[in-house]
Amino acid sequence: MIEGRHTSWFSDSAISYLSDRKVCLVWSDVAGVNNTAPLTSDFVYVILIGDRSIPESQFGKLQKDQTPSMKSWIAKLQKIQDRISYATILVNNRYEGFGPATANRLRLLLGLESLQFTDRHQKTLF
């Protein structure tokens, strides 16, 4: 699996090279990256990061509605669902302000049940 953040990763030659070797080119929603969402393996890994405009001090509640963007990624996945074995989607706090709530919103858009989070404060290891 490779996450490309430079235009060269989305060239025909790079996509062909990765496809021939069945290496997943990550689909990502990151500011400044024009990810064309090519299918290069039998699975898809989607990373939803966004534009990083939400400061860490505001993490813990939804700050930005990314529903239209999430629907767009879901539509891309639905188009290729018969050609992949699975898809994994990662979201972080920077995407909407609170990763767990974003994951729930995504679950609902996918027709899944939401999950209940009882503690909004992430525990530390130390």
Rank of each mutant, 00 (worst) to 15 (best):
T102I: 01
F117A: 11
Q81H: 09
S69M: 11
F117V: 12
N92K: 10
S53L: 10
P68S: 07
I89Q: 07
K61I: 06
T40H: 00
L109W: 02
D51F: 05
R107I: 03
V46N: 04
Q63I: 05
R105L: 12
I54F: 00
Y86M: 09
E56C: 11
S53H: 08
V33S: 02
R105F: 00
P68A: 03
L106G: 05
I54V: 07
Q63C: 13
L48N: 03
L112C: 14
G99F: 02
P100N: 04
S69F: 02
L108G: 08
G32N: 10
E96F: 00
I74Q: 00
R105V: 03
Q66M: 11
L48T: 05
T67F: 03
T88C: 13
E96M: 12
L110N: 05
G60S: 05
T102M: 02
Q63V: 08
P55A: 13
T40F: 00
V46T: 08
V33I: 15
I47R: 15
L115C: 14
F98D: 06
I47Y: 10
F59P: 00
T67E: 09
I74P: 01
I49H: 13
L109E: 09
S57N: 11
Y45P: 01
T102G: 08
V46G: 04
F59K: 03
L39T: 06
Y95D: 07
L39K: 09
S114G: 14
Q81N: 15
Y45D: 01
Q63R: 13
L62Y: 04
I49N: 12
T88K: 13
R83V: 03
S85H: 10
S41P: 01
K61D: 14
R52L: 14
L115K: 13
G50W: 00
S72H: 08
L112K: 14
E96D: 12
Q58T: 11
Y95H: 06
N34K: 12
Q81E: 15
S69D: 12
F98M: 04
R52Y: 11
L90P: 01
G97R: 04
K76Y: 04
E96C: 11
E113I: 05
K64P: 00
Q81W: 06
N104P: 05
L48Q: 02
K79R: 11
G111R: 10
Y86A: 14
V44T: 07
K71I: 04
L48P: 00
L62A: 11
L62T: 15
T102C: 12
L115P: 03
Y95F: 15
Q63E: 11
V91G: 02
A101N: 10
L112R: 07
Q66K: 13
G111E: 05
A103Y: 02
L108Y: 09
S69G: 03
D82M: 07
E96I: 01
Q66W: 01
L90S: 11
Q116V: 15
K64L: 10
P100G: 05
V91A: 04
L77F: 07
S41T: 06
L110E: 07
L108C: 08
S53G: 14
T40Y: 00
S57Y: 11
D65H: 09
K71V: 06
R52M: 14
Y45N: 03
D82C: 06
I89L: 07
I74M: 05
E113S: 15
Q116P: 03
L39Y: 04
R52P: 00
E56V: 15
I80W: 10
G60Y: 01
P55D: 14
D65A: 08
I47F: 11
L109F: 04
